[in-house]
Every structure is written in structure tokens, then in C-alpha cells.
């Protein structure tokens, strides 16, 4: 069943990209979920949309941007939005979650304006919204490899600090852990992973890969390290099963992956119903 994925280059890229994202998104997602920031993924994916729309718009007028992969501009917007969320969270100290809807609506608003300036939707944009893993290009592929390596390294290096900050921020600060630096670093990583995952499941579904496998893992894990194991296993499982069934049943891969995630989550919730 899976052998067909190795016969064609475009399917091979799709599979490899899917596997990288299936690892990266839940891995980072564990920290997002335990810090109760899972909605940030949604906010940042929408600001990524405005970056992509901006890049496509510029591409109409300037040759340079027509040749540039829009994912770069998307990632840049996403990082900018991430920094703005961090800033807003210090402005609304008592309502930190307000930063999320502010950036989310700003992202859509700006995105829609750019789209209309570029004379409406086109096929490219549609692919970014809902994912188009079979349309992954060589340049996407390289960018995603780069993001995977950088983010994985950073997460391993700062694992203990991020873990401590997520569990008990006051104590972490007392023991000398640099809170501001790690917050900013973390949110930039989230922005990068969103840019990478977008190709696979699309902007509208990006947050699902970061949160659903983690939500399922939470029901089963004993301890924090186990959370990563379960979350990554579920993430990869959903990508592999999702891609294969989408190919054979001629379905949209992004949506199929998300549906597989929902099924895994439901099964886990049903199996662990008796536990607290």
C-alpha cells in the first residue's frame, strides 16, 4: 500500500514531509498544551495566511517575489505575530488570552485585504488554506528539513528549562531560569513549526496536529517524558494512515489526517474513560 509512495518523487516528498511534521508538531505541541497555549497555534496560523497572501500579492508586481516561496513570507509574518503576542501578554496581565483573538483577527483581516488586492482567491491560496502535501516542492522540503533540525535541537537543549517553566513559573524564575528569553524562543519555534506544517494540513488545520495527538497522549502518559512518546506516535500514525487512505480513496490529505487524529483521540478517551 505504501510502496506507491516511493515510486513517484512527489509522493516521496509528501511522505517525508508528512513524517517530519508528524514528529515536530506534536513534539512542540506538548509544551503548548501544558502551558494552556494551544490556541496560539490558531492565531499564528492565521497571521501566516496574511504573510502568504502578501507574498502572492507582491509576486504579481515584482518578479523577485514571484520566484520566492511564499512560505518564507508566511514564516516571517508568523514570527512577527508571535513576538506581538508575547508583547500583548504583558500589556493585558490579567487577561493574557486576549492576545490570541487580537492576533487571530488581525491575521485574517490583513489576509483578506491582501487577497482582495490580488484580485481574489486563486488555486495557490486554496492549497495553503487546506494543505496540499502532494504539491510539496523541493524548496518546501528543504525548508522543512531545516526547521525540523533547528527546532528539535533547541527543544532538546532547553528541555529542562521549558519543562520547569511550564510546570511552575515562579519557582523556575527563582532558580534562575531566564523566563523572557525562553518565552520568546519558544514562541518563535511555534511560528516556525506552523509554517512547516502548513504545507501538510493547511493553515486552517495546523493547530490540530499540535494539539490532538497531545490531548490523546495526556490520557495515557505517566510522567512528562511519556507524553512526548505517545504524542509523537499518535502524530506519525495519523500522518501515515491519513496519507495512505487519502491517496487510495482520493480524499483531501490534510482533512483526512485530522480525521484520523480525531478518531485516535476518541478511541483513547473511550478506553480510558474509567480513569480520572
Amino acid at each position: 500500500m505504501i510502496s506507491v509512495f516511493f515510486q513517484y518523487d512527489f509522493l516521496k516528498y509528501a511522505l517525508y514531509t508528512g513524517l517530519m511534521v508528524g514528529f515536530l508538531a506534536p513534539f512542540l505541541g506538548v509544551f503548548l498544551v501544558v502551558r494552556r497555549l494551544s490556541l496560539i497555534a490558531d492565531a499564528l496560523s492565521h497571521i501566516t495566511l496574511s504573510g502568504i497572501a502578501f507574498s502572492l500579492l507582491l509576486g504579481r508586481y515584482y518578479g523577485f517575489f514571484a520566484g520566492l516561496n511564499p512560505i518564507y513570507m508566511g514564516a516571517a509574518f508568523s514570527v512577527g505575530g508571535a513576538l506581538m503576542i508575547e508583547r500583548l501578554r504583558t500589556v493585558y496581565v490579567y487577561y493574557k488570552e486576549l492576545a490570541i483573538p487580537i492576533i487571530l483577527s488581525a491575521g485574517i483581516g490583513i489576509g483578506v485585504v491582501f487577497i482582495s488586492l490580488a484580485n481574489g482567491f486563486n488555486n495557490d491560496l486554496f492549497n495553503y488554506l487546506f494543505g496540499s502535501v502532494v504539491a510539496v516542492t523541493k524548496s518546501d522540503f528543504h525548508l522543512i528539513i531545516g526547521i525540523t533540525i533547528v527546532v528539535t535541537l533547541l527543544l532538546v537543549l532547553f528541555y529542562k528549562e521549558l519543562f520547569f517553566l511550564s510546570f511552575d513559573e515562579d519557582q523556575a524564575v527563582i532558580s534562575g531560569i531566564p523566563r523572557r528569553f525562553l518565552h520568546v524562543l519558544f514562541i518563535i519555534m511555534v511560528a516556525l513549526v506552523i509554517a512547516a506544517s502548513m504545507r501538510v494540513v493547511g493553515i486552517l488545520l495546523v493547530s490540530s496536529l499540535m494539539t490532538l495527538p497531545v490531548a490523546a497522549a495526556m490520557r495515557l502518559a505517566r510522567g512528562f517524558k511519556q507524553m512526548f512518546v505517545y504524542a509523537v506516535v499518535f502524530g506519525e500514525l495519523s500522518v501515515i494512515v491519513g496519507l495512505i487512505s487519502a491517496f487510495h480513496l482520493d480524499l483531501a490529505p490534510g482533512g483526512t489526517i485530522v480525521i484520523i487524529n480525531v478518531i485516535i483521540l476518541l478511541v483513547v478517551v473511550l478506553l480510558t474513560r474509567k480513569r480520572v
Binding site: 532547553f158 510546570f167 532558580s175 502518559a221
Partner: peptide, 24 residues
């Protein structure tokens, strides 16, 4: 100071006490 649903074992929680000392 902590959310009791947090998935961390006793061993992991106590380890945090050394993180500052161990360093970046």
C-alpha cells in the same frame, strides 16, 4: 502554584530542583 493535572512524575518534579544548579 501548580496545575494538578500536569503529567509529571514525582521523580520529574523533584529533578526540577536541580535545574538551576545544573545550568543551561
Amino acid at each position: 502554584s501548580f496545575n494538578s493535572g500536569f503529567p509529571a512524575t514525582v521523580f520529574e518534579v523533584v529533578s526540577m530542583g536541580l535545574y538551576g544548579k545544573v545550568g543551561l
